[in-house]
């Protein structure tokens, strides 16, 4: 303590010095950051640096640094390829489709919120959350089994109604519906949690007052519940738009086969195939970079829009 005091008298109390001293005094705190920062640098920032291979012809023997520059060659090749529009279209359609169903968890939350019976409320929550805990592989396994043209549940029902069996998993026409609606099945309940919590925060007196004024339950939902969760809705919508182009590709990859490729080929699965299966690292990295850049632009634009039109935004 005494030496500390002495030092501060002797030294000029410059701002930098003070900061330096605080740094030294709290050095242990900085050690706490070390593992996480090391991780982020190695597994996030080095890949960001490594993404330069998108502008190079990567040779494993020459390394990232030694491979020759080729400029935008990989990008132009991708944009000019016949599958570029197909990939972009598939990626966009599947995401827009998913986005259009964004209100479903909100409706579920509003519905559960109106239930007064405690046990019914609790059970409907627990049961609708359940599919969220099933892995993607098992979900797709279930789809394959249920939609099997010979033995599957769905085709049995179609058969019982006198219809012809449908090759669901092999059909490009069905792929999007199966992908999106199985996602609704899996995440509907889980997605409602956040809205339910926002609804639980509404002052119950508001409903009481509205009731006295003669409002119906639907009017209460419209004028009290919905406005209460609006900020949550906006934030989640921005976040969803933020990973607009990359959402769910692990499931797409599992559902994909040569027969449904016309609609199931999306940018991310293509990156995996051309890069890791066919070894075109530079080309695949370029496509991946295109995807990331579009995502960044989308989230920044969406955030600006949200900030301009309401007081809710991410930053």
């Amino acid at each position: 303590m005494q030496t500390d005091k002495a030092l501060s008298v002797v030294r000029a109390p410059s701002r930098l010095n003070k900061l330096g001293k605080r740094f030294v005094k709290n050095w242990q705190l900085y050690m706490f950051l070390l593992p996480a920062l090391t991780y982020f640098i190695i597994f996030h920032y080095i890949p960001m640096y490594g993404v330069q291979i998108a502008f190079k012809d990567f040779f494993a023997t020459k390394g990232i640094w030694g491979s020759p520059w080729v400029g935008f060659e990989h990008f132009t090749r991708f944009f000019k390829s016949y599958y570029f529009w197909r990939l972009l279209k598939n990626t966009l359609i599947i995401n827009v489709y998913q986005l259009l169903l964004f209100p479903l968890p909100i409706l579920l939350a509003l519905s559960i919120n109106e239930v007064k019976n405690g046990a019914f409320k609790k059970w409907s929550q627990t049961l609708t959350y359940a599919p969220h805990f099933i892995s993607t592989v098992v979900i797709v396994g279930m789809l394959v089994a249920f939609l099997d043209p010979n033995t599957g549940l769905i085709n049995n029902i179609i058969g019982a109604l006198g219809g012809e069996p449908v090759q669901f998993m092999q059909s490009p026409g069905w792929f999007r519906h199966i992908y999106v609606w199985s996602g609704v099945w899996q995440h509907l309940g889980w997605g409602s949690i956040i809205y339910l919590a926002a609804l639980a925060g509404v002052n119950p007196e508001l409903y009481g007052v509205a009731k006295v004024d003669g409002a119906t339950r639907l009017q209460c939902i419209r004028h009290i519940s919905l406005p209460a969760i609006l900020p949550t809705i906006v934030i989640l919508l921005i976040l969803d738009l933020g990973h607009f182009m990359s959402v769910g590709f692990e499931k797409v990859l599992l559902m994909q086969n040569t027969l449904n490729a016309a609609t199931s080929d999306v940018i991310q699965t293509f990156v995996y195939q051309s890069g890791l299966l066919n070894g075109q690292y530079s080309y695949a990295a370029a496509i991946g970079l295109f995807d990331s850049v579009v995502n960044v632009i989308l989230i920044v634009v969406m955030n600006q829009v949200a900030r301009a039109t309401s007081e809710n935004s991410l930053w």
Binding site: Y30, L37, Y45, G50, G275
Partner: peptide, 28 residues
Amino acid sequence: ELIAKPLVLWIILFTMLFSGGLIPTYLV
């Protein structure tokens, strides 16, 4: 008392916005 907090937070949050992608990560 962590004076570097804004910088560190920024370093961490930026990874939410942008990533090098599948291939560069795989190479690392």
